[in-house]
Design a protein around this nucleic acid. Sequence first.
DNA 1: TTGAAGAGTGAACGTGCGTTCAGTTACCCT
DNA 2: AGGGTAACTGAACGCACGTTCACTCTTCAA
Lengths: 195, 195
Amino acid sequence: MARKTGSHSEITGPRIRAEASRLFARHGFAAVSMRQIAAAVGVQAGALYLYTPDKEALLFDLLKTHMEELLAAWHTEPKGAEPLEALERFVRFHIGFNLMRSEAVFLSYMELRNLSEANFAVIEGLRRAYETELEEILKAGQAAGALSVPDTKLATMAIIAMLTGVNTWYREGGRLSRDTVETIYWDMVRKAVGA
Amino acid sequence: MARKTGSHSEITGPRIRAEASRLFARHGFAAVSMRQIAAAVGVQAGALYLYTPDKEALLFDLLKTHMEELLAAWHTEPKGAEPLEALERFVRFHIGFNLMRSEAVFLSYMELRNLSEANFAVIEGLRRAYETELEEILKAGQAAGALSVPDTKLATMAIIAMLTGVNTWYREGGRLSRDTVETIYWDMVRKAVGA
DNA sequence: TTGAAGAGTGAACGTGCGTTCAGTTACCCT
DNA sequence: AGGGTAACTGAACGCACGTTCACTCTTCAA
């Protein structure tokens, strides 16, 4: 048999990406075979090559899409007028978005080393662009006297690491609601860099 | 030929672990073959099995040893008498130790999913024991009124994530000395959870 | 001097890998 | 009605994997 009824590329393409993301996040890129991905989608391995030139390109596509969506989502977020408000928005946005996309976030941190040098540079560039968004907030806050940040680069890295860390322990339906977590983290960040 | 002069198990064993650690950290557990490790050591693949029952046991040994050394090193550290001093010691210890062992730290965060369930539980237990060390400091500080920590569990995770994040960007001989980094991070932590 | 034990070799085992491709089917357009 | 094409199959390619094992060489105690 070939081509089951109702099966189209607009369906199979996204499903391949979804299953690949799930499997890569769970077991790691190198530990997941094209045959496993195909089986999860319900096709033969060969069919995957209608949607991706090779395995690495599939990973790259997932990472690139994620980073671009992260940046796009941040840019549509309403900006805070004052430095402290801008920082709070960033903190809440980062925690919220990352919890919504935990699989892709995990991938973006863990599987960079499986990329070719050129592809790595692309993802790295997108990540740096995102980090710069936070650093600009900190710089502006420092300049306005609303924040006390001895080294904005370090503070940027520290805050992002701290916020992203939520993904390692947060479970939906756990002890704390997402909003409570955001509030507690915002409280710590505010105190850490507040004037 | 077999056995070159001056070649002993007391030399080969540690070299295997060292090369495996290096390669696993660089390329990921699943992406490194036993033959690659053997080649780096300068033996044939079969020889590795004189030192480990299988590939996963080799990884488990690396992770377990690292976590045990981390806990042992922390326990020999002089304790601070007061809560704030104890917390400062923890912050500086964590950054310092992790920078000294960046390969093993990387492995301990990235390769847990390649462990069997039983082995995973062991490493997880050790990690939790380490986290508890920090949480106890925070609890004591909160009780003594020296710290203001609304949720000690969250603060524990936030601080550890923030500190461990140093490993992702710190490079020896870079812009900032290790001590400067420790001081800046300690400053942020103190403000974040200080009373 | 000898022989057991230690350390390592090198070939082989079956398996699963990423990828290719000729062939097959189902749908759409005319 | 029927031909073209998009979607997919299933088998095959060569290769690398983890692991085993009979064997060889070296060392050292008795």
